[in-house]
Amino acid sequence: MLIDSGSPRAMETIGISLTINGETRNLQVAPWTTLLDLLREGLDLTGTKKGCDHGQCGACTVLVDGKRINSCLALAVMKDGAEITTIEGLGQAGAMHPLQAAFVEHDAFQCGYCTPGQICSAAGMLAEGHAHSREEIREAMSGNICRCGAYTNIVDAIEDVMQSGAAR
């Protein structure tokens, strides 16, 4: 066994290493800490949102080793060694990722709470390369609920970036 935490409750935390937005960090985490809670509560990276905590909304979407996942359903300890990109790492005000800029330009959000998840999801979706038409974008982005109803603008923004080839 690589790790055996021993008897229940004997062990509080496990050491892991994560590269978050390009910075490698050695962290002590309890095994029941999700990646989402680690980011938000442990590292004050609150750009990643908790909308449902159960994989039902997509607000917590981050990129793990380049792939979009729901960080609320990932135990941090299981991501030992992974590379994590959150909305904060995608781009910053003043140096925005093309998707971030396109979301602003197309008014692809209102309250903004689902937005980081939408953008990370869109980045992951573009990297996957399976969606080409508006119809396919709609299906591929259906894992991110926007209660404000900005969907048509979200698709506009993503299509814009897709057509300009601006995304990495």
């Binding site: 690589l2 790790i3 229940p8 409750r9 062990m11 029941w32 300890v77």
Partner: peptide
Amino acid sequence: MNRFDYVRAGTVAEA
């Protein structure tokens, strides 16, 4: 979420 032991298995037999 309740408290639990966390074990990483290296082989199927370990699992």
